[in-house]
């Protein structure tokens, strides 16, 4: 897939049926940002393949930090919209009535 083909289609679904939306295009540096399942992915023209190939490259690997608590949203993992790599956990802050999203992006 060429750079032009890639940015010509602002919305598509990947093979899992998940919506992939083109959000940002920098024509000057030939860089595009896609959004999929609540996460952003940057693609550079010299490395273009296809947005459906998005694998969690090392820079986007998720650090799943499970605090003391229980899984409160197991369904999200199974649903097509879920990324399958993040888990929503209720953290040990029930006193404050808060649930934390414990998935964090590694820099």
């Amino acid at each position: 897939m060429t750079w032009e083909e890639l940015i010509a289609e602002p919305r598509r679904r990947d093979e899992h049926g998940v919506l992939v939306v083109l959000e940002e295009v920098d024509h000057d540096t030939r860089t595009a940002v896609f959004r999929r399942a609540g996460e952003s992915f940057t693609v550079r023209a010299d490395k273009v393949t296809s947005p459906s190939d998005f694998k969690p490259a090392p820079e986007f690997a998720l650090e799943v930090k499970v605090l003391t608590g229980e899984i409160v949203d197991e369904d999200a993992e199974r649903s097509p919209a879920g990324s399958g790599r993040a888990r929503v956990v209720a953290a040990g802050v029930a006193a404050a009535g808060l649930a934390l999203l414990a998935a964090r992006r590694r820099r």
């Binding site: 959000e23 940002e24 024509h27 940002v33 940057t42």
Partner: peptide, 24 residues
């Protein structure tokens, strides 16, 4: 879309405020 071309910025009218906020 949020786009840069020859240094200038172009933001499509339907760009969500959240997209603007997270745009690098």
């Amino acid at each position: 879309l949020i786009e840069r071309r020859r240094g200038a910025l172009r933001i499509g009218a339907t760009v969500r405020q959240a997209a603007l906020e997270r745009s690098t």
